[in-house]
Design a protein around this nucleic acid. Structure first.
Lengths: 184, 184
DNA sequence: CCAATACAATATCGATTCGAAACCTGATTT
DNA sequence: AAATCAGGTTTCGAATCGATATTGTATTGG
């Protein structure tokens, strides 16, 4: 019996995906990581729009993320705004230019491939979700789930509320990625 | 309904795995790629022990692979031998030093994690194998399966035989990775 | 049979990207 | 107030990419 290494399988899938993404990206004149960053920024809430969160999400080092952000800022795709309360912290946001690039890049062949590949058995998507969750647990890294699926998320008559930060949440907030996300 | 992007899931799993591997590797003073290369060389047959095959397997560029091999050769972990028939080609092989490093690195925490994570549902390993195969098909990349599971593999009274290369195969050959591997 | 040409495998090189560690600055703790 | 910690940046060397060059093989037309 051959011992199949799941880690190896995952890495090779990622390698294929990356090399495919690279092809797409060179046409647009940017790196895969740039799109990843902008995609994340379009899907994260105010607790998670920081370089530190990005670092954890992407699994890169702080230095690398810092460089990437510098470049994206210089190109006019994103914006940095210092936090009012904690002046160490920086909030990132996608500018209209960035949104434009993102929508231009998104409906790529890559995703049409994905649907072809996974449409037959989309119930198995859960396997991937579970695997990722398990890996995150083993690695003690955060889950980066949607706000409204979090343990700290509650809904009252005034709307939505986070029991961790003790703050009101908008409908939009609740549908975004949060780094404080905790599985119920 | 949230559209879960399987590609995103895979990439994030790979990011976690890589950052974990990097920790391990820095202790040994080498890069994750180096271990991947040596692991591959320990598991491939004579049709697949070339820089070109490695390039396809790892999803990197030829230049990068060339540099990596140069380094591994300089460190005395691998060996390059020019092909007798086609002098453009190079055959790579793992030296004893390389084997030593590989076995030293292999029983890592990484793999103990893996078993913990995936032991509950190892039947689902097939999902990963299928996903990888599908991706490889979509990408028109080769499958890199085991020789003995290939369409061109036959067994006669003289032993094993490859119908593509019309050559005899040893028992060992048949249990290694081949880049010409074609699913039955 | 022999150029000439197309193709294939690998190597080389400049530019870019990334990771590791040191550093800076502001917040928190003692 | 000093020490410690946390978020972010800078610096530097190593790794990677993409393009080009090099070398060897196969093919084709005379």
């Amino acid at each position: 019996m051959e011992t199949i290494n799941v880690f190896d399988l995952i890495e090779r899938m990622a390698a294929l995906i990356r090399s495919e993404e690279r092809k797409k990206c060179t046409e647009l004149g940017l790196q895969p990581v740039h799109l990843q960053v902008m995609d994340y920024l379009s899907r994260c809430n105010r607790y998670s729009d920081s370089p530190a969160a990005l670092t954890k999400y992407l699994g890169m080092t702080r230095g690398t993320v810092s460089q990437t952000l510098l470049l994206l800022e210089k190109k006019g795709y994103i914006q940095k705004i210092a936090d009012v309360n904690d002046r160490r912290m920086v909030h990132l946001s996608l500018l209209t230019e960035g949104h434009a690039i993102l929508t231009k890049a998104h409906p790529a062949d890559l995703y049409s491939q994905a649907s072809v590949i996974f449409n037959s058995n989309n119930s198995q998507e859960n396997v991937f979700v579970n695997a990722l969750t398990a890996l995150q647990k083993a690695n003690k890294s955060q889950s980066f789930g949607l706000c409204k699926t979090c343990k700290h998320f509650t809904t009252s008559q005034d709307g939505f509320f986070c029991n961790l930060t003790k703050e009101q949440l908008s409908q939009k907030d609740s549908e975004k990625i949060c780094q404080e996300h905790t599985v119920i």
